[in-house]
Amino acid sequence: MSETRFTKDHEWIRLDGDTATVGITKYAAEQLGDVVFVELPVVGKLVAQASEAAVVESVKAASEVFAPLSGEIVAINEALADDPAKVNADPEGAGWFFSMKVSDSGQLAELMSADQYADYVKGL
């Protein structure tokens, strides 16, 4: 069972071997409101930790999603093209954004655990 870690920018990341799945948290999805479009990176793109990896558009505004770790994009959630509402319905499951091959899993230690993230959100 892999552990999910969280960023201060409200992304979640779940590492399985050297492949990580990334999405936005339930808190972020609630704050954004209805998601109408998600712009995902192309497979094969190299992203650096904290660089822009995706853009999520709600009715109201566009928001950046940053790569929680450095690595290479290996898959994207194609289902979001037709049904971006999955991000609101199941942000930490079927509403995942992309998966990436992580180049330095040591970076994971800098991210928050579920408990730490819950405390962080409470303080906002």
């Binding site: 201060k8 704050q31 950046e64």
Partner: peptide, 10 residues
């Protein structure tokens, strides 16, 4: 174009 990082939605 102006975009908002998720953290600014606090």
């Amino acid at each position: 174009m102006r975009r908002t990082p998720l953290r600014l939605l606090d």
